[in-house]
Amino acid sequence: MVIKFTINGDEMEVDVKPNETLLDVLRNKLFVTGPKEGCGNGECGACTVIYNGKPMNSCLILAPEADGAEIFTVEGLTKDGKLHPIQEAFIEENAFQCGFCTPGFLMSAKALLERNPNPSKEEIVEALSGNLCRCTGYDTIIKAVKKAAEKMGARS
């Protein structure tokens, strides 16, 4: 079946099967490879995309469910070659090593800062609790989100 959705603002039409997940389609049919498959079971957050404004695990969404959805991925963060403040903050705080988990963290962080521009440490931990990182540890990631909040506050 053919479904339509937007990815980072671009309209797309793609032929999908009901037993494909949104993550399968993004990665294997549209070559949007920012979202990663870690567990395929909703447990690691590597596949997190912002779906109709909310972070969700794209591995738990059947592709046809996404018909009509607005999807935002890490590919949409960079504008005209300029990094998003959240990306800058992750670099400045050394908030990644292998980077496999990073696109998912960036999506959860972006959605958090949109609903709560000045989150406390506890609120950051809560919002990121569905994202696992196997190499960096969470301290620098939490610091990066704090710093991103400051940067974004200063710019608006």
């Binding site: 695990n57 969404i61 959860s108 609790s129």
Partner: peptide, 9 residues
Amino acid sequence: VGAYQTRNR
């Protein structure tokens, strides 16, 4: 229940 992402669904 689950994580923030889980509870959005």
